[in-house]
């Protein structure tokens, strides 16, 4: 399962409420006439929120004339991918939303395709990973966690809101590996949702929580936990108090991206038009409103840059999963 961020619920529903206005905005000339968003999961999920939030900003800003949405869940996202490839001939206006799991799931063969079978358009937003401890934890910085891990790996119990071998686990293993530890020794405790992992952390049964930064910030604001580190290259302006892993001497960066893919074989002009529309979106106040509401971090990563980023991520995650025994 992909992680459901509660922020995205809000975004979805905001989009739902605004759907009535969507059709009307097409009066003046738009850069792209229409976009059909294909969402590989059900309503209310993270993908759903991203597509609807992006669509809302694009249409309200007048960049895109008309946006429509189609939810198609099944097979961990594989059904939508297969559909897009099968019907590529008439999917000229379609953008499929996806995120880091497309890389992980094609590695683990949940579905036979990979991002190479589609036309990557651009990565648009992202979220860093973060490590969280309760207020009363003995850990004040990430180095202390590493020291404990080196002395006795099983003394550090890392909670996460998804199964073993999925993102929360991989990120934790990656961080300990970069710090010189054995990623296989990481004691990962899986919960079936972020909220439950948080409850486990507060009950004292785990020592640290691995989660997304935006969710971690909400939790920290609730006042029960502290964020030890996040996985960005540098600190972000929305939360300048949170240190990066890098500045604590652990050379590990990770971003859980979300972005858009078009059907295979689509014309280069059309891809360029999509990219131009997305790029233009960032400067609009309509986007800023959606972005702020959802706590998204802008990471614009178009075309070839996006492809090479995906290849790099596939390499890192693939190596890690092999080392952990998942592949």
């Amino acid at each position: 399962m992909f992680t459901l961020s509660r922020r995205s619920f809000v975004a979805t529903m905001a989009a739902v409420g605004l759907s009535a206005t969507v059709g009307m905005a097409s009066a003046q000339a738009a850069d792209v006439e229409k976009i059909h968003f294909l969402i590989p999961g059900g309503a209310g999920g993270g993908w759903d929120g991203t597509a609807r939030g992006t669509g809302e900003a694009l249409t309200k800003a007048g960049i895109v004339g008309q946006a429509s949405y189609e939810n198609m869940s099944g097979g961990g996202g594989g059904k939508a991918i297969a559909h897009l490839i099968e019907t590529a001939g008439r999917q000229d206006d379609t953008l499929m939303v996806n995120s880091t799991p497309i890389v992980i799931r094609s590695l683990t063969k949940v579905f036979p395709q990979s991002f190479r079978d589609l036309t990557p358009v651009a990565g648009t937003i992202g979220d860093y990973a973060a490590f969280v401890v309760p207020n009363n934890s003995k850990y004040q910085n990430f180095s202390e966690v590493i020291a404990d891990f080196m002395a006795d790996p099983s003394s550090v119990k890392v909670a996460g809101g998804s199964a073993r071998g999925s993102m929360d686990h991989l990120v934790a293993a990656y961080a300990f590996k970069a710090a010189g530890g054995d990623p296989k020794k990481v004691k990962y405790i899986p919960y079936d949702a972020g909220g439950k992992a948080m409850a486990g952390l507060l009950s004292g049964e785990t020592s640290m929580l691995s989660t997304g930064l935006s969710e971690a910030l909400d939790l920290a604001r609730a006042g029960e936990v502290r964020i030890l580190a996040m996985t960005g290259e540098e600190r972000i302006k929305d939360a300048p108090e949170v240190p990066t892993l890098k500045e604590q001497g652990v050379d590990a960066t990770f971003v859980n991206w979300r972005g858009f893919f078009a059907a295979p074989g689509i014309s280069a002009d059309k891809v360029a038009a999509f990219q131009a529309a997305l790029e233009k979106m960032y400067a609009t106040p309509e986007w800023e409103e959606v972005r702020k509401r959802n706590g998204w971090v802008e990471i614009y990563n178009p075309g070839d840059k996006f492809v090479s980023f995906l290849e790099g991520q596939e390499q890192v995650i693939g190596d890690l999963m092999k080392e952990l025994g998942f592949l």
Binding site: R6, V10, M13, G195, A222
Partner: peptide
């Protein structure tokens, strides 16, 4: 605590 225990409370949060 700011902890949602179910899908509904997650939306509420």
């Amino acid at each position: 605590l700011g902890i949602p225990g179910s899908g509904t409370t997650a939306i509420m949060l």
